[in-house]
Amino acid sequence: MPGPDLLSSQGLRLDGRRPNELRRIRCKLGVFAQPDGSAYLEQGNTKVLAAVYGPHQASKSKSLQDGVVVNCQYSMATFSTGERKNHPRGDRKSQEMSMHLRQALTAAIKTELYPRSQIDIYVEVLQADGGAYCASVNAATLALIDAGIPLRAYACACSASMAWRNGQPEPLLDVGHVEEAAGGVVLTVASLPSTGSIGLIEMSHRLHMDYFDVVLSRAMQGCKDIEVILDRAVREHLAEGWTKQDVVVI
C-alpha cells in the first residue's frame, strides 16, 4: 500500500481516534476587552487566538463602493512550533495564509451591508500541531460573531487525509501534525456547512481522482461537526449573559 500506516489493524489512528473523529475542540468567545470581537480556539494541540476590529471606515485607497473590505492578518508565534520560528509574520507562508483566510471569511460575511468600510481580522497561532489554517478560520468565525458582524452562516474549515485499512481506502478527518508529517495528502476545505457552499479547497499533494470524492465528503462532514460545536459555544456564551466589555460604559 502506498503511504505510511496511519490506521492500525483495529481501525484506530496513531493518536487513538477513529477515522471520522475530530480532535478535541475547546473554544471561548470574548477573551479580550480591547478588540471589537475575539475568540480562543483549541483543536487538539493547535491553539489559536483571533481578534476582530470593525467595521470601521476604510482608508480611501482600499475602500469599495459596494461592500466591506475584509483585511486579514495571519501570524504564528515564535514559540508555536518545536523549533523556534524566526519570522513570525510577513513571510510568504503567512501572506498566503492571510489570503486564504480572507477568501473563506469573505464568503461568510454579509459584505454588502457595510460599503466603504473595513473589517480587520487578526489571527495568531500560539501552538501549531497540524491544521493551523482550519483552527484559524474557526476561531475567526467566533471572533466575528463576538464582534456582532452579520454572517450568512458559520464559516468552518476542516482537513481530511487518506489512509488504508485492509486494502480499502479510508479517509481521515481533521489531520494532526503527525499524520501530516507522515506524508499523506491533506485536503483542506473551508465551507459554509449550513448552505453547503465551499469557500476554499486546498490540497498538499496530488490525490488520485478515485479518492477525491470520499476525502472531500469526509472533510465536509467535519465542517458540519465543527459547526455544531461552534454553535454550541456561541449559545453558551450568550447564555452567560452580557460580556464584560458590553457592561463597561465609557
Binding site: D15, G16, N45, D129
Partner: peptide, 13 residues
Amino acid sequence: GNIIKIVREHYLR
C-alpha cells in the same frame, strides 16, 4: 540535530 520537545495527543476511549 537539536533536542526538541514533542507533545502528542493521546486519546483514551
